[in-house]
C-alpha cells in the first residue's frame, strides 16, 4: 500500500493536467452551482428543502459576522458562506464510498501503480492553498477598501506582520489539507488493516474492515464539518481585524 501525498494526474486538457482531486472538486463546484441556480430560479417565500439549508447556513454566518464585525459585516458574508459550502461539500463528497477506491491500475516506471479516479478535493494541497490564498488576499483587499491604502499599510510597519500574513496562507492550507488527507489515510488504514495484518487479500476481509471503519467514518463526517467551519470563521476573524481598526 502506497500513500501518495500528491494528487495523481489522470489526463491532460491542453497544457493543464487534470488530477483526480481536481475532478472531485469540479464535481463539488458543479453540484453547488447547479443547486444555487435551481434554488435561485425557484426561490420561494417559504423555504423548503435545499433552499432551507442554504438559507440556514447563510443566516448562521450572517449572525456571526454581525456579532464579530457589526452591521457592516454583512458585506463579507457571501465569500465566507461560499468557503463554507465549497469546503464542506467537497469534504463530504470525498467520504462517498468509491472515492479513493475506484481507479485504474497503470504501469509507471515498470511498476504496477493503482491510480484512484477520484480523490477528496481538499486532500490536495493545490486546492487548499488556493483557498488560503483567496482568503488572505481577500482579507487584504477588504482591509484596503475599508480604511484606504495608506491606513491599511500602517498595519505593516512591523515586518513581522508580513511574515505572519504569509504564514497564514500555509496555516490555512496545511490545516485543511492535513485534516482531510489524514482522515482519508485513517479510513484507508481502518479498511485495510486486517488485510495487512493477516496478509490475506481476499474480498471477504472487506466486511470486518468496513465495520472497523464505521466509527472513523462518523468522525470524518464531523471533521469535514468542523474544518469547513474553522476555515470560514477564521477568515471572518482575520477580515474583522483589518476592517474594524480605528482610523487615527
Amino acid at each position: 500500500m502506497k500513500i501518495s501525498v500528491a494528487a495523481e494526474k489522470i489526463f491532460n486538457i491542453g497544457p493543464i493536467p487534470i488530477t483526480n482531486s481536481m475532478l472531485t472538486s469540479f464535481i463539488a463546484i458543479l453540484i453547488l452551482a447547479v443547486a444555487a441556480i435551481i434554488t435561485g430560479k425557484n426561490f420561494k417565500r417559504l423555504p423548503t428543502g435545499v433552499q432551507n439549508v442554504l438559507e440556514m447556513v447563510y443566516e448562521m454566518f450572517e449572525n456571526l459576522a454581525v456579532e464579530i464585525i457589526g452591521e457592516k459585516g454583512k458585506t463579507y458574508v457571501p465569500l465566507i458562506v461560499t468557503f463554507f459550502l465549497y469546503i464542506i461539500s467537497s469534504n463530504w463528497i470525498s467520504l462517498i464510498p468509491g472515492v479513493g477506491s475506484i481507479g485504474l491500475n497503470t504501469i509507471e516506471n515498470g511498476q504496477k501503480v493503482f491510480v484512484p479516479l477520484f480523490r477528496g478535493g481538499n486532500a490536495d494541497l493545490n486546492t487548499t492553498l488556493a483557498l488560503a490564498l483567496i482568503s488572505v488576499v481577500a482579507t487584504q483587499f477588504y482591509g484596503i477598501s475599508a480604511s484606504g491604502i495608506k491606513n491599511h499599510l500602517k498595519h505593516f510597519i512591523n515586518p513581522l506582520e508580513i511574515v505572519s500574513e504569509v504564514s497564514k496562507i500555509f496555516s490555512f492550507g496545511f490545516r485543511l489539507f492535513g485534516n482531510i488527507f489524514a482522515g482519508e489515510v485513517l479510513l484507508l488504514v481502518g479498511a485495510t488493516i486486517l488485510v495487512i495484518m493477516t496478509r490475506q487479500s481476499s474480498a471477504l476481509m472487506g466486511i470486518p474492515g468496513g465495520i472497523l471503519q464505521a466509527p472513523f467514518y462518523l468522525f470524518e463526517v464531523f471533521v469535514g464539518f468542523i474544518q469547513a467551519f474553522i476555515f470560514a470563521v477564521l477568515s471572518l476573524v482575520f477580515i474583522s481585524i483589518y476592517v474594524q481598526h480605528k482610523v487615527d
Binding site: 501525498v5 496545511f174 490545516r175 492535513g178 488527507f181 489524514a182 489515510v185 474544518q227 470563521v233 477564521l234
Partner: peptide
C-alpha cells in the same frame, strides 16, 4: 473552543505532513 482547537490541531497536522513526506 473549536477555533482554538483548530489552531492547536494545525501544529499536529504540520508534524503529520512532515512524517508523510
Amino acid at each position: 473552543m473549536i477555533l482554538a482547537i483548530g489552531f492547536a490541531e494545525a501544529i499536529a497536522i504540520y508534524a503529520l505532513v512532515i512524517s508523510l513526506i
